[in-house]
Computed example of a mutant assay.
Amino acid sequence: MLDLTKLAQQMQGIGQHLNQEAATVRQRLDRATVLVAQAAERQAELVAHHDTWGDRLGFTAACPIEPLDTAVPLTAAPNAHSVLATDGSQIAPSHHEIAYCYLVNVGRVALHYGQSRYPLLDSLPEVFYRAEDLYVSRQWGIRTEEWMGYQRTVSEAAALADLAIACQSPQPGAAPSLAMVDGSLIYWFLDPLPHEARDRLLPPILAAWERLRAARIPLVGYLSASRSSEALNFLRLHTCPHATPDCQTHCAGQSETAPCQVLTPLRDTVLWGLRLQPGQRGPFWRSSAHILSLYGEHTIYFCYAHVGSEIARIEMPEWVALDDTLRDIALSLTLTQVQKGYGYPVALAEAHNQAVVRGGDRSRFFALLEQQMIRAGLQNIGTSYKEARKRGSIA
Rank of each mutant, 00 (worst) to 15 (best):
S255D: 14
E146M: 09
A305R: 08
S384A: 10
Q10G: 05
E41N: 08
S255L: 14
G282P: 02
E256N: 13
V136L: 06
S363H: 14
I217W: 14
D87E: 05
W209G: 11
C260I: 06
E126L: 12
A214L: 15
S155E: 13
R152G: 12
H290S: 12
F128L: 10
A388P: 02
L121G: 00
D246M: 15
R143N: 14
R358H: 13
L68C: 05
R358M: 11
T24I: 08
S288D: 08
L271C: 05
L276H: 06
A376G: 08
R130W: 10
L7H: 11
W319Y: 09
P64S: 03
A179F: 00
A62T: 00
A92R: 10
E256H: 14
G343A: 09
E315W: 10
C303Y: 03
L111Q: 01
P93Y: 08
D328C: 10
L46G: 04
H250K: 15
N19Y: 15
E256T: 13
G341I: 05
S123V: 01
H96N: 12
E210W: 05
N19V: 10
A23H: 13
T86I: 13
E146G: 09
D323F: 11
A44N: 07
A388R: 12
D69R: 06
L292A: 04
S224D: 15
H306S: 05
R108T: 01
L206W: 07
W188R: 00
A231R: 09
A231Q: 05
W140I: 08
S287C: 09
G183I: 01
W285Q: 03
G343N: 11
Y304A: 00
P170R: 07
P317V: 12
I329M: 07
